[in-house]
Structures are given as structure tokens and as C-alpha cells.
Computed example of a mutant assay.
Amino acid sequence: MDPDWLHELFSPYGRVGIRRLFGGQSVYLDGLIVAFVADDVLYLKSDAETAPAFDAAGLAAFSYLAKGERRVLTSYRRAPEEALEDPDALRPWVMLAQSAAGRAAAKKAGGRRGKPAAKRSRSTLAP
């Protein structure tokens, strides 16, 4: 997909960043990754809270084969085709993706803050 088109598509929702990602592109809004493109298909970030909306619309998760044997499902769901042509139809899906991305970032940040630094083992020798 054309990066200019992606920028135009997502610009109503925040500051857009487009980066290369494994032969496709990733889409960032206000610093958070909310979507990516693989094989000319747009996928939006989801999580346990937003998955039911994607399921209800029949929007499959992006998956890949790990080491050629095991299928891995990701937290990214196919964007509805009609939403790519209609900004009003895209809005609720982008809102879901932004909320999922925000929760993922908060969870990641929370996991780092509360962890104590690894303790170093000190060997003490008695005299």
C-alpha cells in the first residue's frame, strides 16, 4: 500500500508515522503502533477487549507459520474492506485499534516499572 495513502487514511486520528516492517509497513498514531500492512492487506491492532467486535464482523486475525510448522495468531485483525473507502466507516475500527494499542503500551510500561532490578549474588567468605 502507498505510504501517502496510509498517511491520509489515518491522519484524522492523530500524528501518523509509517515505517517499513518485514516487506510491508507499520502505522503509528501518536507513537503507538495501531496497524500494519502485509501483502497489501491492512490489519488493525486488537486485544481481548476489542476482539469480540472483530469476531462479530468476521475479521480474521493475521497469522503466520513459525518455523514452518506451527500457526501463530497475532493480535492484529483484518480491516473491513468497506472501511478503507469510507472514513466514517473506518473511524470506529481505528478507535478500537487505538484503545488496544494504548492498553498494550500501558501494560508493557507497568511491567517495567514494578520490577525490581536483578540482585547480584555476592559471595562472602568468612575469615
Rank of each mutant, 00 (worst) to 15 (best):
D88N: 10
E82N: 10
A105P: 06
S63R: 07
R70T: 14
V72D: 12
R20V: 04
S99T: 12
T50Q: 11
T124G: 05
S123G: 05
D39Y: 02
K108C: 02
A35N: 07
A79D: 03
A117E: 11
P127V: 12
A83N: 00
P92W: 14
E49H: 09
S123D: 06
Y13L: 12
L6Y: 11
Y28G: 06
R70N: 06
H7T: 11
R71H: 09
S99F: 04
A109N: 09
G14T: 15
A66D: 07
S75L: 07
A48L: 02
A89F: 05
S46C: 09
D47Q: 08
A101L: 08
D86H: 11
E85I: 03
A83L: 07
R103Q: 10
P127I: 10
S123Q: 07
D47G: 03
R122D: 11
R19A: 03
L84W: 02
L59S: 13
Y43K: 06
P87G: 05
A56G: 05
T124R: 09
L125W: 14
L42F: 15
D86L: 10
A38D: 09
L96E: 10
A89R: 10
P3D: 14
K107V: 10
D40F: 13
Y64A: 01
G111A: 13
K45M: 14
P3S: 13
A51K: 03
Y28H: 12
F36V: 11
A89M: 05
D39C: 00
R15E: 15
R20K: 08
T74E: 02
A60P: 14
P116I: 07
K107A: 13
D55Q: 14
P3A: 15
G14Y: 14
A60D: 14
M1S: 04
A117W: 12
L9A: 04
M95E: 08
A79K: 00
A97R: 10
L9R: 05
V16E: 04
Y64P: 00
I33D: 09
G58H: 14
L84A: 10
Y13D: 12
L59F: 05
D55M: 01
A126I: 13
L32Y: 07
M1I: 10
A101T: 05
T74Y: 01
G31T: 03
R71G: 08
A56E: 11
L125M: 09
R77Y: 08
E69D: 11
A101M: 03
P116M: 09
K115V: 15
Y76Q: 00
V34H: 01
L32F: 08
A57F: 04
V27K: 04
G110R: 06
A35C: 15
P52A: 02
L32Q: 12
S121W: 12
Q98M: 15
E85A: 11
Q25G: 00
Y13V: 11
R120D: 13
E82Y: 04
F22H: 15
A53N: 05
R70G: 00
F62T: 04
F22P: 07
A79W: 02
A105Y: 09
R20Q: 06
